[in-house]
Simulated assay, not measured.
Amino acid sequence: MKLDGRVAVITGAGSGIGRGIALACSRRGCGVAIADVSEDGLRETAGMIRGVKVTTHKLDVTDRAATAALPQSVLAEHGRVDLLVNNAGVAIGGTFEQVDEADFDWLMEVNFHAVVRLTRAFLPLLRTRDQARIVNVSSLFGLIAPPGQTAYSAAKFAVRGFSESLRRELEEAASAVGVTVVHPGGINTNIARNARPPRHVSNEEAAQMAEERDRFQKFLRMSPIKAGEIIVSAVEGEKPRVLVGNDAKIGSLIERLAPIGYWNILKRSMS
Rank of each mutant, 00 (worst) to 15 (best):
Q72Y: 07
A46D: 03
S15R: 15
G12A: 11
R64Y: 15
L23Q: 08
A35K: 04
V99D: 05
K58I: 02
V85W: 10
A66N: 15
I17L: 15
D40I: 02
T45E: 00
R28Q: 03
F104Q: 12
L83M: 14
R28P: 04
R19D: 04
G79Q: 09
T11H: 13
A22M: 07
I10P: 08
L3S: 03
A24I: 03
D36P: 05
V90P: 08
T67R: 14
N86W: 04
G12D: 09
V74L: 04
C30L: 06
G31Y: 15
V54N: 00
T56E: 00
I49K: 10
S73P: 04
D103G: 13
L75R: 11
A46L: 07
A33V: 03
A13Y: 01
T11Y: 15
V74S: 14
E44Q: 11
R80E: 14
G20P: 06
T119Y: 10
V61F: 08
M108K: 12
L123K: 05
V90T: 13
G93R: 12
V9A: 11
T56A: 01
G5C: 05
S26R: 02
L84G: 10
L70E: 01
G79I: 04
G12Q: 07
D100V: 08
R120G: 06
T11F: 14
A24H: 03
A121P: 03
T55F: 04
E109S: 15
V81W: 04
G79W: 10
A65C: 14
N87S: 11
G89C: 05
G29V: 02
G89Q: 08
R43M: 09
S26W: 01
I34G: 00
E109I: 08
C30T: 10
D4A: 08
G89A: 15
